[in-house]
Design a protein around this nucleic acid. Structure first.
Length: 468
DNA sequence: TCAGCTCACACATTTGAAACGT
DNA sequence: AACGTTTCAAATGTGTGAGCTG
């Protein structure tokens, strides 16, 4: 299995004609996401963002805040975030820079953060920015609060997922539009390593005001940091690389760092070499290695953009994934991206019509329940029993020790479970979702209680990025 | 010995209930 | 009585630094 980056060169050219946008498909595929406060993110990114992870869970700072457009106002969507390993290495901070310290540790249980407003109509998501302020990171693999579990000294980046779904159940069968923003990548740490990051955090995080030089607590930090403020705050302008994927997760979920298997020997050294080469942008070099980047930091050329689409698997003819690259061609998002500096936002727009394969449906045809006759009309949702084959397949694969699991759209719903069970409290008769999870799901917390609402449900992993 | 982790701490903001005024 | 504003305490979020651990 290949990582997305690895796959990228293998796919090029325009989308197939079957993917050409019809009126509905256009609506489906025209979702645009912009990252709020990209300048702040970039400022951190240039130094090498670090995020503290603690046992009880720590918020991110800067926290993820996005704007959405292009959604169907009256269609319901679910927003999710998960964290994806940047690479297969563990790092250490050594003499003012990050160095590869070995192979990554086995991945912790995967968690996906579900935005508490989910599901909500497109108008809701679009009327104001969507904040993931409450998302917390932890290094406690036994965490029972639903926080996203990460390894310290490992690099990650958040992925934002939009799913058109009337309820949480239909998440399983819907096409995910996935967005990532390169400047949001970070290193998970239990204590800050780079004093520049510490200072940035203190300067920008209101909760840390007490540690500011002009604050009442300056005595504590007096001899800790001596960095000219202007130094760290100067923003190196560089063109954003924003990767867009339209996918159903399962197949892009790396179970280990297999995508790097072939490079394990060489990569660390190469990364260090490139770290020097690309230092002006970021202390991180490796992340750029597969990217097609313009050399002009101020250039308006669009960064290479690629798109993936993964299909809802069908029992009979399960397609692992489909991947389309739109990379080299300028896109609406390109112009958006190039104008980011003016708008103060990093944006990305999906141009891939959502086409999902469902049983007995031609994948080239729009799904009726997603691309209905009217964007605002009643939408047919597939019933669970339509897809028991998919579920069984998933379970069978999950049961294989050490096997590669092909489909890991994670859902707390069993196929036998009726729709609407999450609508309110009920007897705790439904098994926790973990029976479907990936290799590590034995580590997932088995909650005995039912899911009375979205917030509770959100603590369960929807997908496993750790399985291909 | 040392890098990485945990914990208690002081200081900050946020939140929500109570009190108050219109 | 209903509603809006203000106040205040508790909860929560933050980085620090000492101590612990492997």
């Amino acid at each position: 299995m290949q990582s997305i980056r690895d796959l990228k060169p293998n796919f090029s050219g325009p989308p197939p004609s079957s993917m050409a946008a019809g009126p509905d498909a256009y609506h489906q595929g025209n979702i645009r996401m912009t990252l709020e406060d990209p300048e702040l993110w970039k400022t951190f990114h240039e130094i090498g963002t670090e995020m503290i992870i603690t046992k009880p869970g720590r918020r991110m700072f800067p926290h993820c805040k996005i704007n959405l457009s292009g959604l169907i106002p009256c269609a319901k969507y679910i927003l999710l975030v998960d964290m994806v390993p940047e690479d297969g290495f563990r790092y250490k901070w050594n003499k003012e820079k990050w160095e590869v310290a070995g192979k990554a540790e086995p991945q912790p249980p995967c968690r996906t953060y579900l935005h508490p407003d989910s599901p909500a109509p497109g108008s809701h998501w679009m009327k104001q920015s969507v904040s993931f302020l409450k998302l917390k990171l932890t290094n406690n693999t036994l965490d029972q609060h639903g926080h996203i579990i990460l390894h310290s000294m490992h690099r990650y980046h958040p992925r934002f997922h939009i799913v058109q779904a009337d309820d949480l159940f239909s998440v399983r069968w819907s096409v995910f539009q996935t967005f990532t923003f390169p400047e949001t990548s970070f290193t998970a740490v239990t204590a800050y390593q780079n004093t520049k990051i510490t200072k940035l955090k203190i300067d920008h995080n209101p909760f840390a005001k007490g540690f500011r030089d002009e604050g009442t607590n300056k005595k504590r930090r007096a001899n800790k940091i001596s960095l000219p403020p202007d130094d760290v705050l100067s923003v190196v302008s560089f063109t954003l690389e924003v990767n867009l994927m339209t996918c159903v997760f399962s197949d892009f979920c790396p179970s280990s760092y297999e995508g790097y298997d072939g490079e394990e020997v060489d990569l660390p050294k190469r990364k260090e070499d490139e770290a020097v080469k690309e230092e002006r942008y970021s202390p991180w070099a490796a992340e750029k290695e597969h990217s097609v980047r313009t050399d002009s930091p101020a250039g308006a050329d669009p960064r290479d953009m690629y798109n993936t689409e993964q299909l809802v698997p069908a029992p009979a003819s399960y397609q692992p994934y489909r991947f389309h690259e739109y990379g080299k061609s300028p896109s609406p998002s390109s112009s958006i991206g190039s104008s980011n500096s003016g708008s103060g936002r990093s944006s990305f727009e999906s141009r891939v019509p959502d086409v999902a394969t469902v049983p007995n449906h031609d994948s080239s045809k729009p799904r009726t329940h997603e691309i209905g006759p009217s964007p605002c009309g009643p939408q047919h949702l597939p019933t669970p029993q339509d897809y028991t084959g998919v579920l069984n397949m998933t379970m069978a694969q999950a049961g294989k020790p050490g096997g590669v699991i092909g489909h890991h759209i994670y859902s707390p719903y069993g196929a036998e479970q009726p729709l609407g069970q999450w609508g309110g409290p009920g007897p705790a008769q439904y098994p926790p979702p973990h029976h479907l999870t990936a290799d590590y799901t034995t580590q997932a917390v088995h909650h005995g209680y039912h899911h009375g609402n979205v917030a509770e449900w959100s603590q369960y992993p929807l997908f496993s990025y750790s399985c291909w």
